[in-house]
Amino acid sequence: MTGADLLLLALGAVAVGAGVLVVSTKHLVRAGLYLVVCLGALAGDYLVLTAELVAWVQVLIYVGAVVVLLLFAVMLTRAPIGASDDLDRPGWPAALIGGGSGLGLAVLLVDAFRWSRVELPTAGTADRLGEQVFRSWVLPFEVLSVLLLAALVGAIVLSRPDIGRPGPVRSATPAAGDEGGRA
């Protein structure tokens, strides 16, 4: 057991514990906050595993953006302050499937790696990662940018119901009627 192992074990315990709270708490807002703890613990894991850039991106995007968005959504949907009783449905199939997949994966991974040991590489830098992204993975990177654009447009269209649909006022005009007839 090295220090890194102890660190990983502690951070993993924090992450799993926070995850348990995320899926079991009865307070909507607290679920978001536990998610922050879980994601932060994972960012710590990344740091230990010498993936500095991923760790900071995790903190920036997940903790800084995604969770904030989720909390906004919680508020916009007028979630009640305090505990709610109708958040869950009967849990045994979920427990069966979730437990099965989680424990099954764990058994597989334990079986695969046992108590083996690897040397951690030297701490990486954004320099090395950026070289890979812009040299070997530049095409998927560009495709991802298109995907982000599409998601952006999609989100806007979804949240603005008056875009792209003929409203009653427009269709009442004769020009729109002719257009409809031609179609």
Partner: peptide, 28 residues
């Protein structure tokens, strides 16, 4: 470093995620 520790952490987190997707009624 024992890689089994983060791997098992990930597996348990994944199981929790599956459980949460199936258990929760609230879309958020």
């Amino acid at each position: 470093m024992r890689p089994v520790v983060p791997y098992v952490t990930a597996a348990l987190l994944f199981g929790l995620g599956v459980f949460g997707v199936l258990r929760r009624r609230n879309a958020v």
